[in-house]
Computed example of a mutant assay.
Amino acid sequence: MLEALDITEAEALGLSELAQHDLALARDYARRALAAEDNEEAGRLGRSYQRAARSYRQTLAVKARLKRDLAVAAHARAQAEAAAPKPRPGQAAVARRIGELRTALLRLGWDEAERPESDGTDVAPDGGGGEGAATVDFETACRDFGYRRADIDDLIADERASPEFCDEPLDDHVARLALHLRFPPGGIGRWPDLPDPPGAALARGVHGIDWRSSA
């Protein structure tokens, strides 16, 4: 802040020191003037007191004005920084985040596509399918996953348009998008441990695949 007004820390401290000296002189002149027995001497000391007191007041005024100017400069700088457009993330960072989000959301999507609707008896306490949990047949899972995959790609495409695309921690980013896609909250944190979808489920033109032979 001090640099904005072309004043150093030492110069700012000097103002405080000057104020202390002015106050000390004013007190000394006042004491001596009050104790003087000669009127001429008392008058001379009184005038010296007034000069020291005026210098003290002026130094305090300079400090107060400097404090206000520093606050105004800081506020103006903060406004300028807030108004400045935020630089967009580099293409490498964007590509890396897109890949990480797709990996996480596709794993969650496939995990959900494989799990049939049920009364909850086949769901593990951690929110995922327990050992031996029932799964739907491969063709049905792939068809369901195809819709989920389209939603995932559309959502990531919308997200990448934001300048803050890479700012959010990955796990928080995944969780926010997964909740938007209505994945069960209890299983979202498991995505690093989930398997990737099989190649057949990721194939384009899924309706033309012989699911039984692919499985």
Score class of each variant (00 low, 15 high):
16 S>L: 13
25 L>F: 06
176 R>P: 00
159 E>N: 08
119 D>G: 07
35 A>S: 13
182 R>Q: 10
183 F>V: 02
47 R>W: 05
144 D>P: 00
151 D>M: 12
145 F>P: 00
64 A>F: 06
66 L>H: 10
114 E>Y: 01
164 E>D: 15
143 R>S: 09
104 A>N: 12
70 L>Q: 11
38 D>G: 10
71 A>G: 07
1 M>W: 06
76 A>N: 09
87 P>W: 03
91 Q>H: 12
76 A>F: 01
151 D>P: 00
32 R>I: 01
185 P>I: 08
111 D>R: 04
94 V>Q: 11
109 G>I: 03
50 Q>S: 12
19 A>R: 09
201 A>S: 06
149 R>E: 15
22 D>V: 00
87 P>G: 05
149 R>F: 09
204 R>C: 03
82 A>F: 02
110 W>M: 04
87 P>T: 04
13 L>D: 13
69 D>G: 04
209 I>W: 03
76 A>L: 13
105 L>M: 13
190 R>A: 15
7 I>N: 10
48 S>W: 11
11 E>M: 08
139 E>M: 05
96 R>V: 02
68 R>I: 06
12 A>I: 02
115 R>I: 02
79 Q>W: 02
6 D>V: 01
194 L>G: 02
88 R>P: 00
68 R>M: 05
196 D>G: 05
152 I>F: 05
119 D>I: 00
17 E>N: 04
25 L>Q: 10
179 L>P: 00
166 C>H: 08
193 D>Y: 06
76 A>S: 07
145 F>N: 08
69 D>R: 15
3 E>N: 13
86 K>W: 03
205 G>D: 11
156 I>C: 07
204 R>G: 09
162 S>H: 11
178 A>P: 01
42 A>V: 03
90 G>Y: 03
177 L>C: 11
214 S>T: 00
85 P>S: 09
170 L>E: 09
121 T>F: 04
158 D>V: 03
41 E>W: 04
83 A>Y: 02
114 E>F: 01
47 R>G: 03
91 Q>K: 15
111 D>F: 04
209 I>P: 01
173 H>A: 15
73 A>W: 07
150 A>R: 12
161 A>T: 03
105 L>W: 09
124 A>S: 14
144 D>S: 09
76 A>M: 06
